[in-house]
Write a protein that binds this DNA or RNA. Sequence first.
DNA 1: CCACTTAAACAACGCTGTTGCCAAAGTGCA
DNA 2: TGCACTTTGGCAACAGCGTTGTTTAAGTGG
Lengths: 380, 380
Amino acid sequence: MNLLALRSHNAALLLDLLRRAGRAGVSRLELAERTGLTPQAVSKITARLREDGLVTEAGRQASTGGKPRTALRLAPEAGHAVGLQLDRDELRAVLVDLTGAVVAERRAALDLGAGAEAVLGAVVSEVRRLTEGLLSAPPPDRGGRDPSPSHSVSPSPSPSTVLGVGVAMPGPLDHTHGVLQRVTGFPEWDGFPLRDALARRLGVPVVLDKDTNAAALGLAVGGEVGAFAYLHLGTGLGAGLVLGGAVHRGTRTGAGEFGHQVIQLDGPPCPCGNRGCVEALCLTAVARGDIDEAARVLGEGAANIVGLLDIDLVLLGGRTVAAEPERFVRGVGAVLDARARREGASSPVPVRIAPGGARAVAEGAAQLLLAPLFGRTHTR
Amino acid sequence: MNLLALRSHNAALLLDLLRRAGRAGVSRLELAERTGLTPQAVSKITARLREDGLVTEAGRQASTGGKPRTALRLAPEAGHAVGLQLDRDELRAVLVDLTGAVVAERRAALDLGAGAEAVLGAVVSEVRRLTEGLLSAPPPDRGGRDPSPSHSVSPSPSPSTVLGVGVAMPGPLDHTHGVLQRVTGFPEWDGFPLRDALARRLGVPVVLDKDTNAAALGLAVGGEVGAFAYLHLGTGLGAGLVLGGAVHRGTRTGAGEFGHQVIQLDGPPCPCGNRGCVEALCLTAVARGDIDEAARVLGEGAANIVGLLDIDLVLLGGRTVAAEPERFVRGVGAVLDARARREGASSPVPVRIAPGGARAVAEGAAQLLLAPLFGRTHTR
DNA sequence: CCACTTAAACAACGCTGTTGCCAAAGTGCA
DNA sequence: TGCACTTTGGCAACAGCGTTGTTTAAGTGG
């Protein structure tokens, strides 16, 4: 690591704290305490960030007997990112600002079977329309006296502050290379380099990830900290894992294959070829209307994850869960509590419905582009 | 991160590469390439490390038409660490040098039920005897011209180069605070602050961890890279997880609770209170002599981990595995291969016997002290 | 023997966060 | 209203990091 890397590392540290502080902002001194940097270092770094337009002063805090602290906060309009959720039959796109707040949204029907050309065309057109407003209406002057073209990030007169597009999709894919793999039911997409194809057409960076990972990333940014598992029960069953504050993807972006965990040896066959998969057991129960049994099965799977990884929180999401949220939370929680009690844990691991609803995946996809700014790039 | 942290970060980066290179050593230029630092930076940093006695020149490499590269390697005798494995009825202690090589070893009977005073006394006495040789025979002069007392690490004339003692134990415990929890069968140890008690008596830093985590750390240092799971099948069944090059312990040091993963819903009861735990199923099969079935059950559990975390390798260890290594490797491998094939993976995840044998845990425990020097402290 | 190549130290430098100092901006008591 | 006190945060000087430019060391090959 060299001095440039150190510089951006510390800047990211501060930006992350500023993001978590929200509109109210944080004082320089609190930033210093929480990062371990000296107040003077924080002053210098935030001065650069203000010159770059990323940070603004946001009023004063109450005095404690001396000069009151000046609150600093992110300048939301200093950067934007597009989050794209591609499903088998639908497309959802959101435009978020630097704080992660949704600025605009679009939805459209999509036919993944229509071929690469048609799909790419539709996607490009939707993204263009979503960002149109930004291109025509430049952001207001932020009061930075010196445009200082020497800095890498110079949002001021730029026609667009869009950092890039994050794409979230189901099915196996390679996050590192941005390539699709064996999209269920659509063999023509196998091996398609979606990231590079989109990046070329749109002229901005593109990042590809699994929908569950995107959702988990969004949740990690939106307040949940530490280590948690996001379990998504919709037409299938998958998981997004956040360990040590970062999304765990594994070497081949395969992590989170929760649905085909075997929890009943030699159980009923699953379309995947295994027997006794959580997904098969859970969805079968849902199909026959036995939500409590589905929740119990899901709970056993969740308890396995909790025990194996010692995580702090389980979040539930997806269409099937959304139909009966309380019963799923109660059923899964009951299994976790029972197991935790047996193992003598002091406090059980909480279970909650993941906030964000149907937009969670698209919002998380946008975070794929914002994350590097805030230094969330530890684990693979 | 400040400049001092940057300095030790880069030093740790180089020390880690030097450790992996072994006796043969690495050239400065190769270190530069692999760290991304400039050759001049590597020269400066290694010069400091040589002054501190941590690094030595180790001959020249073959010339490629110009001045031949000078190989650098770790000075093994510059630092030592004690690794201690405490079992229900036995104690094993090793003394390792900076490269992780075992310098001395002791074994003794131990009765965990004899009370804290007796156990601590026995442990302290064993550690003292193990390190006696170091105290009486100071390491030979390493040729550093300037003792430079300004540096933090100054091994030269110091009576002892022992960095501390790593303690590995089964059962639940708190790595962060060094406290035991509910040691199975020995309620008197519940809540005992073993780390601090030992550190006070020995006068050196002590680190406490689960035996499976220690073994996994040792394996991670000893060559295995990336992400892998170490599955330990002895009197119980546990796992050590290495993700992104670091041991994953979880918030409460509870990660790796592999034995009580439920893989057969409503299966046979386990002493832990659950039904259908891998441990119960596996050990029952072993008890009735059905090793192949035990291996199959273990394999299903292993496949769940591999799928959930997308890891690169499964390592097997423990007394029960050691009795029939080939059959376990074959049986677990068969399940992993079958599942990987169904999911269309390009190459199956390999299964091997963990090297190190009976000493693996103690050696890994010693690495608990060495790890910070080499910068392996990312994940919790 | 000498031109050439490659490695690594030396010297000067830019930039990082740190330290010491001082102006700014409040509170609270007389 | 005035003044002592507290606290924030900028300015200036500085030590130390890795970088760049140059020189010396130590080989190969014709």
